[in-house]
Deep mutational scan, measured.
Amino acid sequence: KRLCLVCGDIASGYHYGVASCEACKAFFKRTIQGNIEYSCPATNECEITKRRRKSCQACRFMKCLKVGMLKEGVRLD
């Protein structure tokens, strides 16, 4: 089984260019469509796991980008 490159949960397929789970796919889409900017309360190096993926949105979004999710893949309509 493929794992989500962002949080390590089971991937539902390839989304925005990267093997990812439904939760991270939806999080990435919401962030881009809403043009949301997050800031990390710590040092921008929070560990993102299935259990902790909700704890820091800034680091989760940075990890989405780091593993290769493409903003261009999100439709803005």
Rank of each mutant, 00 (worst) to 15 (best):
71 K>V: 11
47 E>W: 06
35 N>E: 14
10 I>S: 11
58 A>F: 05
38 Y>R: 05
74 V>H: 07
31 T>R: 02
42 A>R: 11
26 A>E: 14
46 C>F: 01
71 K>I: 11
38 Y>N: 00
44 N>K: 12
25 K>D: 15
5 L>F: 09
7 C>K: 00
60 R>T: 13
75 R>H: 08
26 A>N: 04
30 R>T: 08
66 K>S: 12
69 M>E: 03
40 C>F: 01
15 H>S: 08
15 H>A: 11
66 K>L: 04
59 C>L: 01
1 K>Q: 05
17 G>H: 05
43 T>M: 13
24 C>R: 02
31 T>V: 07
8 G>Y: 09
39 S>F: 15
22 E>M: 05
72 E>C: 07
14 Y>I: 13
34 G>I: 06
15 H>E: 11
38 Y>S: 04
5 L>E: 07
50 K>F: 13
77 D>G: 08
11 A>S: 13
54 K>Y: 14
44 N>W: 06
15 H>L: 07
33 Q>G: 08
2 R>F: 14
64 C>Y: 00
62 M>F: 11
51 R>A: 12
3 L>H: 14
24 C>W: 01
11 A>N: 08
73 G>C: 09
31 T>K: 05
39 S>Y: 15
10 I>R: 11
42 A>V: 08
69 M>P: 01
35 N>M: 06
21 C>I: 02
7 C>F: 05
65 L>N: 01
39 S>G: 15
63 K>E: 03
75 R>Y: 10
59 C>V: 03
75 R>V: 12
28 F>I: 02
8 G>W: 05
55 S>C: 15
32 I>Y: 00
33 Q>D: 10
13 G>R: 02
75 R>S: 12
72 E>P: 11
5 L>D: 04
23 A>Y: 03
76 L>K: 11
70 L>R: 12
69 M>I: 03
40 C>P: 02
9 D>T: 12
22 E>V: 09
14 Y>N: 11
52 R>C: 01
72 E>L: 05
45 E>D: 10
2 R>M: 10
41 P>H: 11
27 F>R: 02
51 R>Q: 14
58 A>G: 08
44 N>R: 12
14 Y>D: 14
20 S>E: 07
76 L>A: 14
58 A>N: 13
43 T>A: 13
64 C>E: 03
6 V>D: 00
75 R>K: 13
59 C>M: 03
41 P>W: 07
43 T>Y: 07
74 V>F: 08
16 Y>T: 05
9 D>E: 14
4 C>I: 00
11 A>K: 05
31 T>E: 02
66 K>A: 14
40 C>H: 11
65 L>Q: 10
45 E>K: 09
17 G>L: 03
35 N>A: 13
50 K>S: 08
52 R>W: 11
12 S>Q: 14
54 K>C: 05
30 R>S: 04
21 C>R: 01
64 C>W: 03
70 L>G: 10
53 R>M: 14
25 K>E: 15
39 S>K: 15
40 C>E: 02
66 K>D: 10
55 S>K: 14
34 G>Q: 15
37 E>W: 03
52 R>D: 07
33 Q>E: 11
32 I>R: 05
39 S>Q: 15
39 S>R: 15
74 V>N: 11
55 S>P: 15
67 V>M: 11
19 A>R: 06
68 G>D: 06
24 C>N: 00
47 E>Q: 10
63 K>D: 01
75 R>A: 13
77 D>V: 09
33 Q>Y: 11
19 A>S: 13
5 L>A: 08
39 S>D: 15
31 T>F: 00
2 R>H: 13
32 I>L: 05
22 E>W: 09
43 T>H: 04
44 N>Y: 06
42 A>D: 13
2 R>S: 08
13 G>L: 02
68 G>C: 01
36 I>C: 11
56 C>H: 03
30 R>E: 14
49 T>C: 00
18 V>R: 05
37 E>K: 03
71 K>H: 09
18 V>W: 02
51 R>E: 14
1 K>I: 04
73 G>I: 04
39 S>T: 15
42 A>L: 10
64 C>K: 01
58 A>H: 04
30 R>C: 03
9 D>N: 05
73 G>L: 12
54 K>Q: 15
10 I>M: 10
35 N>H: 13
66 K>M: 13
20 S>D: 07
34 G>N: 11
59 C>T: 01
56 C>D: 00
46 C>P: 01
40 C>D: 00
27 F>E: 03
63 K>R: 09
22 E>A: 12
66 K>C: 05
75 R>M: 13
35 N>R: 11
58 A>L: 04
74 V>D: 13
65 L>F: 04
70 L>D: 13
4 C>H: 00
48 I>E: 07
9 D>H: 05
70 L>N: 13
1 K>M: 12
11 A>R: 04
63 K>P: 00
53 R>N: 13
47 E>H: 05
13 G>H: 01
53 R>F: 13
59 C>I: 03
58 A>M: 07
34 G>F: 14
11 A>F: 07
21 C>F: 00
63 K>Q: 07
48 I>T: 08
18 V>C: 08
69 M>T: 03
13 G>I: 13
34 G>V: 08
36 I>L: 08
57 Q>N: 07
17 G>P: 05
67 V>F: 07
43 T>R: 13
40 C>A: 00
21 C>K: 02
24 C>L: 01
52 R>Q: 14
31 T>L: 01
13 G>Q: 07
28 F>E: 02
19 A>P: 10
20 S>I: 15
14 Y>H: 11
16 Y>V: 09
64 C>T: 02
56 C>L: 01
61 F>Q: 07
38 Y>P: 03
44 N>C: 04
41 P>K: 11
30 R>Q: 14
71 K>L: 08
65 L>P: 01
60 R>E: 01
70 L>Y: 02
68 G>A: 01
8 G>R: 07
49 T>M: 12
29 K>C: 06
26 A>H: 14
60 R>A: 11
62 M>G: 11
15 H>W: 10
44 N>E: 12
43 T>N: 10
66 K>N: 10
11 A>Y: 09
36 I>N: 08
23 A>I: 01
68 G>P: 00
57 Q>I: 03
28 F>K: 02
23 A>K: 11
48 I>S: 09
47 E>L: 10
56 C>Q: 04
74 V>A: 14
51 R>T: 11
4 C>P: 00
72 E>K: 09
29 K>P: 01
35 N>T: 12
72 E>W: 04
3 L>M: 10
6 V>H: 00
41 P>L: 09
46 C>L: 01
10 I>Y: 11
63 K>Y: 00
10 I>L: 09
25 K>S: 15
29 K>F: 09
56 C>W: 02
